[in-house]
Design a protein around this nucleic acid. Structure first.
Lengths: 149, 149
DNA sequence: GTGATTTGTTAGCTTCGACTAACTTTATGC
DNA sequence: GCATAAAGTTAGTCGAAGCTAACAAATCAC
């Protein structure tokens, strides 16, 4: 119990370990991934089809309609989308901003992978998984590299 | 219902869309991420401390003891670890193999990020998130780049 | 070797993301 | 304009991952 306690516990929070902090960051990222995938897809659908209908979201995400419905309810609760029963889905300002941010990240990661020489299909796949876990700092390096090459 | 149906549905499965397939891949990856993080950490603890105790796993992962216990039960069910009540945790052959594979990926991603010029702390953080979403093909390019630079 | 501390477990709660089944509403075909 | 098909919703289940509270076992200290 002396101040020279071997366990350097932070006063109040849980971290205590640099690794723990990193994992908590990863967990946080995982929680928001789905939301990001949805708003990104919704923005895209609105752009290409004029509207985002649950049935199309379900098809593109590869899940069933009820799953989409529940997720959209959550997104609505979180203020990212608005919806009316039996109608298509819209993004709030916040949702639109998030979508744009996601698209930006996605683009940077994708271009980077392509500039490394990766084939288009694999690049798209990997970008989809990677984009949620890249820090701003890394993005800067990615863009610089893609431009330079 | 004619054969020239506009929706090109694959006969039996759900995919139907290249994007859907990609998302399903990402979801699959997400499911195994935690398992991978655990076996990787367990291998590391065994290496550095001689044994992997739940309490240390909890500290490093930044979660509580009961969460660790439940997850370890799942990993045991999946044949990745073995455990006895009130004793420390061991990896099965399968678990050891997975840990090694994870460590390899982690190393490659980390070295790659560092060789891009990223600071050590951010590199570690990003690697933790990215490593589960990188295809073998991308890993090859990453290693080539890290060596070449 | 007994008492306190640390570690581990059990039970029970919550949220999330997935599913199926069954139903309602909207859109379509004719 | 009415029947049918497509789309959307509701209800209910499941497993995973997190938590707290309360208890049991093991270890340490002396």
């Amino acid at each position: 119990m002396k101040p020279s306690d071997p366990a350097p516990q932070t006063p109040d929070d849980r971290p205590a370990d640099p690794r723990a902090e990193a994992f908590q960051g990863v967990r946080a990222a995982r929680r928001s991934e789905l939301a990001e995938d949805y708003v990104e897809l919704i923005a895209e659908l609105i752009h290409t089809q004029g509207e985002a209908r649950p049935v199309d979201i379900a098809a593109k995400m590869g899940v069933t309609a009820p799953t989409v419905a529940k997720t959209l309810d959550r997104l609505a609760r979180e203020g990212l989308v608005t919806r009316a029963r039996y109608r298509s889905v819209f993004l709030t300002d916040e949702g639109r901003a998030l979508a744009q941010e996601c698209r930006r990240r996605h683009e940077i990661v994708l271009r980077f992978l392509l500039s490394l020489g990766l084939d288009a299909e694999t690049a798209e796949r990997d970008a989809e998984g990677i984009e949620h876990h890249v820090s701003e700092r890394t993005l800067v390096l990615f863009s610089a590299f893609a431009i330079r090459s």
